[in-house]
C-alpha cells in the first residue's frame, strides 16, 4: 500500500503545563473521510491548528504525501505555506468568511496564489496582459463550478454576511476547495445546520471525496454525519486517542461509549 495522505506521528502539544494533545498517532488516507470525534475539550481543534500551522507542535511529526508522491513535513512549514504548497485547506468552527466581500470575491481570494503568479505579482495584471486575463477567466470558472455545486450561483454577488447561516457554512467549504487542496480539514461543518442541511452536507462531502479524489479530515459532533459518511473514525479524549477504526467498530467500542456516548445511551440511538 502506498504512503498515507496524512501521517500524524506521536504528536504532542503542550500549553504551559497543560497537555492538550498527548502522543497522538493516526493516519488519513486519500479518497477517504476520516473523522476525529471526542467530547468537548478533547483537543480536536488543537490537532487542526497544529496541522494548519496556527500552533507549532511541542513534538511529533506531521507528514503529508501528495498523490504524486511529493512529501511535506507540516510542522516545519509556515502557516500560509501549508495551504499554498502542501495543499492542506481548512474551515473554522466559528465561520471565518470575508464578511463584507461578496460570495464570489471570497472564492477569488482563495485562488490568490495562482492568480498572483499569473498577474506577475500585479505588474502584468495592472496592464491587463492576456496571461492574466486567461487566468482570471479560469478562476471565475472554478468559482462558478463550486457555486453551482452548492447552489449559491444566484447569490454570487451578495455580501457574504448577508447569507443565511447554512449557506455561510457551505461557502466556507467551497472556498477551501478553491485552494485546490489534497487534504481538506473541516472543523464542525454541520454545527448549527438543520437535518435537511446536514443531509445535503453529507452529499457534498461524499461527492468531493469521489470527484476530487482528496482526503477529508472532519471534526464533528453530529453523529449522523460521522457515522453516515466517514470511512475511518479516530476518537480522542483528554488529548489522547482512545479508539480508532471504521464507524461500526468505534460505535461498539466500550471505551468510546464510556468516554463519549456513555453519558447518554440514547444519543447513540439517535445517531443510527
Amino acid at each position: 500500500m502506498s504512503a498515507p495522505l496524512l501521517a500524524v506521528d506521536h504528536l504532542t502539544m503542550r500549553f504551559g503545563g497543560l497537555i492538550a494533545i498527548g502522543d497522538l498517532s493516526f493516519e488519513a488516507q486519500p479518497r477517504e473521510i476520516t473523522a476525529i470525534i471526542g467530547p468537548n475539550g478533547a483537543g480536536k481543534t488543537t490537532v487542526f491548528n497544529c496541522l494548519t500551522g496556527f500552533y507549532r507542535p511541542s513534538s511529533g511529526m506531521l507528514s503529508l504525501t501528495h498523490k504524486n508522491g511529493q512529501r511535506f513535513l507540516l510542522e516545519r512549514l509556515d502557516g500560509h505555506l501549508i495551504t499554498r504548497t502542501a495543499r492542506v485547506a481548512r474551515t473554522f468552527q466559528n465561520i471565518r468568511l470575508f464578511s463584507n466581500m461578496t460570495v464570489l470575491e471570497n472564492l477569488m481570494v482563495a485562488q490568490h496564489a495562482a492568480l498572483m503568479k499569473a498577474s506577475l505579482f500585479t505588474l502584468g495584471g495592472l496592464f491587463g496582459l492576456p496571461g492574466y486575463r486567461k487566468a482570471e477567466r479560469n478562476a471565475l470558472e472554478l468559482a462558478r463550478h463550486w457555486l453551482d455545486k452548492v447552489g449559491l450561483t444566484a447569490k454570487a454577488d451578495e455580501a457574504a454576511n448577508a447569507l443565511p447561516y447554512g449557506d455561510q457554512r457551505r461557502l466556507e467549504i467551497v472556498r477551501a476547495m478553491c485552494t485546490g487542496p489534497e487534504l481538506l480539514c473541516l472543523d464542525e461543518p454541520a454545527a448549527g445546520l438543520n437535518p435537511k442541511e446536514s443531509a445535503d452536507l453529507n452529499q457534498l462531502l461524499l461527492s468531493i471525496k469521489r470527484e476530487e479524489e482528496i482526503g477529508i479530515l472532519l471534526i464533528e459532533h453530529d453523529m449522523s454525519v460521522v457515522m453516515g459518511i466517514s470511512d475511518h473514525v479516530v476518537v480522542l479524549d483528554y488529548g489522547r486517542k482512545i479508539a480508532e477504526g471504521p464507524p461500526s467498530h468505534v460505535r461498539a467500542d466500550k471505551a468510546v461509549i464510556r468516554a463519549y456516548l456513555g453519558e447518554a445511551e440514547d444519543a447513540e440511538e439517535d445517531a443510527c
Binding site: 466581500m101 470575491e105 496564489a113 492568480l115
Partner: peptide
C-alpha cells in the same frame, strides 16, 4: 480588481482566514 488588492481587503476582513487560504499576511 487584481489579486493583490483583493488580498488587501480580505486581510482587513480576517487575517486568520487569509493565512488559511495560503496568503502570506
Amino acid at each position: 480588481k487584481l489579486p493583490l488588492g483583493r488580498a488587501w481587503e480580505a486581510l482587513r476582513e480576517d487575517e486568520i482566514a487569509c493565512k488559511a487560504l495560503g496568503i502570506n499576511p
